[in-house]
Amino acid sequence: MKIGVDLGGTKMKAGIEYNGSIIQQHSTLLREKHSLSATLNQLIELIKPFASSATSIGIGVPSVVDIERGIVYNVANIPSWEKVELREILEEEFNIPVFVNNDVNCFILGEHRYGVAQNFNSVVGMTIGTGLGSGIIIDNQLYAGNNCGAGEIGMLPYRDHNFEYYACSNFFDAVHGLSALDANQAALQGDKKALSLWAEFGVHLGFAIKAVMYVYDPEAIVLGGSIAKAFPFFEAGMYEALNDFAFPESIKRLKIFQSQDDNIALLGAAALVPQEFQTVSVSLKH
């Protein structure tokens, strides 16, 4: 059994993966984000109940990652995590192998291994929440780039800012002065203004998807994150923005899915563990 960990800017979650399912999990709100020692202790305490029955740990972090050494840099929304040798810290604590990657890479790895993208060789996952992140599968392999920075579509210039400014929760908070949750609740009640906002949001996201298509031309795109749950409200606007794509046949063949499994990032984190570490416990002590 493997431990999958999903570390976010506001919440952390850990669970045990067994035969493609999360059979037990815990989550907690992140406290004292300005203290590295406090956040690390909180992470260790979250993992500790699972460690005795696990062979290894996979963890997704919202940051650039030195995958070979398991070092994370400038973790989003956790200011104390500027450079953290996470693999070394957790291996020293639990004495089992640890594998670290970007959180959106874990999301799409989970979708490709266990979720809605299982039948595709090339797929891009886009998580829409506080930010706009992307993870990439090419020829059935996770592609992270030289610095684990591949797929940062949200950082590409768009209008007067970038895609992330218009195609995540910021579109509601900063641009229109209300939360995405409030916009969703209003849309559920049929509020015309809220429905119009979601349609506009869909157009912005559609332009981001066009960027994905020009760069990667995947078979499928999977939308995840908290805002993706409002997919029915922005779907039409999204496809409207795709109407003028330069290669219309590519859009006809493209499949766009909404993620269906709230545990998919945990499953993807656990899937970081190579096969040789999955069946037996490997001691790291000499």
Rank of each mutant, 00 (worst) to 15 (best):
E111Q: 08
H161A: 00
N162D: 11
V65C: 12
F163S: 00
S53N: 13
N147Y: 14
N147D: 11
N121A: 15
G154D: 03
E92A: 14
L181N: 12
T55N: 14
T127C: 05
F50Y: 09
I108R: 03
G60N: 07
N77D: 14
I59T: 13
N77S: 15
D66E: 15
G133N: 04
T55K: 07
I78D: 15
I71C: 09
Q141A: 11
N102C: 12
N101T: 11
I153W: 00
E82R: 10
I128M: 01
G60Y: 06
E85Q: 12
L86T: 13
Y166K: 01
E152L: 05
V100L: 09
H161Q: 10
G60C: 09
G131E: 02
E164V: 00
Q141R: 14
A51Q: 10
L86H: 03
S80E: 07
V65P: 00
R113P: 03
Y166S: 02
G125C: 07
S122C: 14
Y73W: 12
F172P: 02
N170P: 07
C168S: 07
A117P: 04
Y73F: 14
D173C: 12
D160M: 02
V64C: 13
V100Y: 10
E92V: 08
S63W: 06
A54L: 04
G125F: 01
E92D: 09
Y166H: 02
Q42P: 15
N105A: 12
E88S: 08
S122T: 10
A38C: 12
R159P: 09
A180I: 06
V175N: 09
V123W: 15
A174H: 06
G145R: 05
A38N: 11
V65E: 07
V72Y: 05
F171R: 01
S52D: 11
S179R: 04
C106F: 04
L109W: 08
L36R: 15
G154T: 00
S80R: 09
I128Q: 00
N162Q: 07
I71S: 07
N95E: 11
Q42E: 15
I128P: 01
R113H: 04
I153M: 03
Y158E: 12
G149N: 08
I108Q: 05
Y73Q: 02
M155G: 00
L86R: 03
N41D: 15
G110I: 11
F120K: 14
S56V: 11
I136Y: 03
I153Q: 00
H161C: 03
E91A: 07
L86G: 10
I89W: 08
S134G: 15
L132I: 00
F120G: 07
E82F: 13
D182W: 08
N74S: 13
T55W: 11
A144Q: 05
L132F: 01
G115C: 10
A51F: 02
Q141W: 08
D173I: 14
G129E: 04
N105I: 08
V61W: 00
